[in-house]
Structure formats: structure tokens, C-alpha cells
């Protein structure tokens, strides 16, 4: 129960941050990405401030035995840079440039009564589903062929439990 309250507080603060910073506005995102036009550097400050907070605090938090309300930290343990990581990031950036939405703001704008955000939401979920179920299908086919190739994992599955 306490965990769920922390979850809601975090989600609300995140949503508030996206709203106040203007990241909910695709035109502002495009203004930031358009460095050759009327460039709006605001989002560089958003990202720098947010990553600055995490950079200053995460190492201290992760030094704890466990989080306050759970028995262990659930953080990614992979450190390898593979082609799927780079390819995925490249594709994600192209989509971000085209639509002006990244996943956080897709949710933050969902209940604003705009049909466009519903379209982006459905398209984004479809893209995620295609990757998740496509890679699961590819993995099952590879395994049937006898070769135990690396399973392309979507996120979540490459997050292993870290017990300290």
C-alpha cells in the first residue's frame, strides 16, 4: 500500500514536471530539436536538471541495502552495448522527430481531450507490441532450430534483480 502511494506521488510529480517544463507540448519539442531554425534550448535545461538530480542522488540511494519500501532494488544490470540498443535508439529518435512525442508526454497528454494524442498513444503501443511479440517469436523460432542464439529482450526482461 505504501509502495503504491510512493508510485502515485512519483507519477504525479513526474507529470507535473513534464507539464511545467513544456515537454507536454510537441511544438516545444520540435522547437528544441530544430537547431537550424528558431532554436528553443529549454528542453536541454529540462534534461540537464533532471539528470543532474539523479546523478547527484542515485549513487547515494543505491548504496543503501535496499529501498525504503521494498526488499531489493530493481535496476538494470546489463552493461553491454549491442546493435539492437543503438538501432532502437536511432529509430526512437526518428519517431520522436516526426511526431514530437516521447513516451512520457504521450501519457501526460492522454486525458487532455485531444484526438491526436490518442492516435500517437495507439501507434506507440502498436510499435511496442510489434517489437515485443516479434522478438519473442524470432527467439522461439531460433530455439526451435536448435541454435541457442541470444534472445532479443525488450526492456523489463533485461532488468535483473539486484540483491545487495
Amino acid at each position: 500500500m505504501k509502495q503504491l502511494i510512493a508510485t502515485i506521488v512519483s507519477g504525479l510529480v513526474f507529470g507535473l514536471g513534464l507539464t511545467i517544463s513544456g515537454m507536454v507540448n510537441p511544438a516545444k519539442i520540435s522547437g528544441f530539436l530544430d537547431i537550424a531554425g528558431n532554436w528553443d534550448p529549454s528542453l536541454a535545461i529540462v534534461l540537464a536538471a533532471a539528470a543532474g538530480v539523479t546523478a547527484l542522488t542515485f549513487s547515494l540511494i543505491l548504496r543503501r541495502q535496499r529501498p525504503i519500501l521494498d526488499s531489493k532494488f530493481h535496476v538494470p544490470t546489463r552493461t553491454d552495448v549491442d546493435y539492437m540498443l543503438v538501432l532502437g535508439a536511432g529509430i526512437f529518435g526518428i519517431g520522436w522527430g516526426i511526431a514530437g512525442f516521447c513516451p512520457g508526454p504521450v501519457y501526460t497528454t492522454l486525458l487532455q481531450g485531444r484526438w491526436e494524442t490518442l492516435v500517437v498513444f495507439v501507434a506507440m503501443i502498436a510499435g511496442m507490441a510489434v517489437f515485443k511479440f516479434g522478438s519473442a517469436y524470432a527467439a522461439s523460432h531460433r530455439n526451435r532450430g536448435g541454435a541457442a542464439g541470444p534472445v532479443l529482450t525488450a526492456d523489463g526482461s533485461d532488468i535483473q534483480e539486484r540483491r545487495s
Partner: peptide, 17 residues
């Protein structure tokens, strides 16, 4: 643009974990 962009965002973000 919204459909293609949204789809690529989902696909790419998932692939990039």
C-alpha cells in the same frame, strides 16, 4: 506523421530498452 512517428517511438524505445 503522428501514426508513423508514434509507431517508431514505441518500436525504437522498446528495442533500446
Amino acid at each position: 506523421a503522428l501514426i508513423i512517428g508514434g509507431f517508431l517511438v514505441g518500436l525504437g524505445a522498446c528495442a533500446a530498452s
